[in-house]
Design a protein around this nucleic acid. Sequence first.
DNA 1: TCCAATGATTGTGT
DNA 2: ACACAATCATTGGA
Length: 431
Amino acid sequence: MDEQPRLMHSHGVGMAGHPGLAQHMQDGTAGTDGEGRKQDIGDILQQIMTITDQSLDEAQARKHALNCHRMKPALFNVLCEIKEKTVLSIRGAQEEEPPDPQLMRLDNMLLAEGVAGPEKGGGSAAAAAAAAATGGVGADNSAEHSDYRAKLSQIRQIYHTELEKYEQACNEFTTHVMNLLREQSRTRPISPKEIERMVNIIHRKFSSIQMQLKQSTCEAVMILRSRFLDARRKRRNFNKQATEVLNEYFYSHLSNPYPSEEAKEELAKKCAITVSQVSNWFGNKRIRYKKNISKFQEEANMYAARTAVNATSVSAHGSQANSPSTPNSAGSAGSFNMSNSGDLFMSVQSLNGDSYQGGQVGANIQSQVDTLRHVISQTGGYSDSLAASQMYSPQGINVRPTNGGWQDAPTPSSVTSPTEGPGSVHSDTSN
DNA sequence: TCCAATGATTGTGT
DNA sequence: ACACAATCATTGGA
């Protein structure tokens, strides 16, 4: 910096002890010719460069004089132009930046999660969407949702408070800097464009802070989501009634415990759970039943007896059994085949694994067959130990609980008929 | 506190 | 897409 005065000296323009600006101002002729103008500019420059070296009063006086000098606007314009063409133009090239994709992602997410955007509904909509995604739409999880919403709105509140703080700080700082620059623009060449640029720089800095805020908010939302909507963490046992409905269906369709889509829907409705929950339940049940049939024997018999009572009472009234086991009853060919007798069914069953598809179509009849089989097994002197051994009894050439299930070796129903002696093949069908 | 039961998820096979 | 099997994570009773 202190080189510049020397530079001036070398040009032989402004010198220490040079007449003050006031004098120049009085000297109107100074600016008329080229030489005079040059000297004039040199003087002004000199004033600018040495202004900090002077005492406060003197500086103030000179500052005032400078501000009032007729050449000042022109000079500042030129200087601004030079600045513009050099440093600022380089910076300007960097300024044109596309919207940050990362920021856009964060914004979108916050919007989708209901943290940003409209106050009402966003959060609950996001919660509902998230719940739907996890398949958990139950009557009992509305409480969970409200809890989720409460936490989400807490995050939202914090986010907005912080955002407001940032914005306020940003505005305050921007105003301060702008005032400062405007003030300074009287004594040094600062164009409005430059001020604007400075404001942009400040905004960018603050927006990067904002991005951090958004990022941490997103993280918080994600954690909240995973904690609240991970169904495994919020597992609730189904209520007794729901379990009974499902078990009833399962044991009354033991030969083919694969509810159709409609059956699942109806079961879901009855149990106030989702279809996917029904699917899960049946998946688990099939596996666990197959793994340890003896354990489920008692349960099987209980439900079989119960269903049998229902079935007989219903048939006594000459109407259709209106249980969840009905949805599959739309079948015609299957029903026809099945409707002949349990004997036919069983023979088909033992000959052809696909017969269970028929069973699925004629679920009504199949249900009755299963049920009756259980009743017979109960009345015929059932014993647990026998049941356990029966699982692997010689009767079951196709009785292999571990071989992959009902579809290709579909005789768990006979497995659940432990009264059949090892020799009494299909004796249960002779009802 | 332990442990069986149970609903849900994940990985794999078809 | 669905079923199975293994597994996880939670619940609830002893």
